[in-house]
């Protein structure tokens, strides 16, 4: 098992148990999420693209949770992320600087963040290397501190 999955496994299991879904999260991340992100996977990773990836992920999970009590909450998360083109304005309004947004748990390391700032990552690389960052808005506060 890769380090990425070791890091994610416990968080996802807790989320699964709490949500009461009979859902294979690993399959969601490995099979469904790439499909959801396919239109933007080759694009350079920016703050706006991160929020768009999170939006598409929340949209997929909202569809999965359509018949569960969690549906409305996922819809709210999805709607909250829907203005991804204005991600910078959103951060300004909540008073968070971009570095903090990228690096808070389960965020990027300093070195990774520098690579992203220099346009060296695509959305696909984020999915492969840091899928938890895409899932983070949907899993808080189960596992991650804000």
């Amino acid at each position: 098992m890769t380090q990425v999955w070791q890091n994610l496994q416990e968080d996802l299991q807790v989320a699964l148990r709490i949500l009461g879904w009979d859902c294979d999260f690993r399959q969601f991340v490995e099979e469904s999420l790439p499909l959801l992100l396919q239109d933007i996977s080759d694009e350079t990773l920016t703050l706006e693209k991160l929020m768009e990836a999170q939006f598409l992920c929340a949209k997929g999970l909202a569809n999965l949770a359509m018949h569960s009590s969690s549906f409305e909450r996922f819809e709210k998360i999805k709607h909250g992320l829907s203005q991804h083109e204005d991600a910078g304005t959103f951060l300004a309004i909540i008073g968070m600087d971009e570095t903090t947004y990228w690096q808070r748990r389960p965020g990027l390391t300093d070195a990774e963040y520098q690579e992203v700032k220099h346009g060296q990552w695509t959305v696909q690389e984020l999915l492969e290397r840091r899928p938890a960052l895409i899932l983070a808005p949907c899993l808080r506060p189960t596992s991650f501190n804000n």
Binding site: I77, G80, L81, C138, P141
Partner: peptide, 19 residues
């Protein structure tokens, strides 16, 4: 739409998907 999304964003930043 922008403001409504902002309120949802702030709310879910605080609460996440789980209560």
């Amino acid at each position: 739409n922008f403001l409504a999304a902002m309120l949802d964003y702030i709310g879910t930043q605080e609460a996440g998907s789980l209560t």
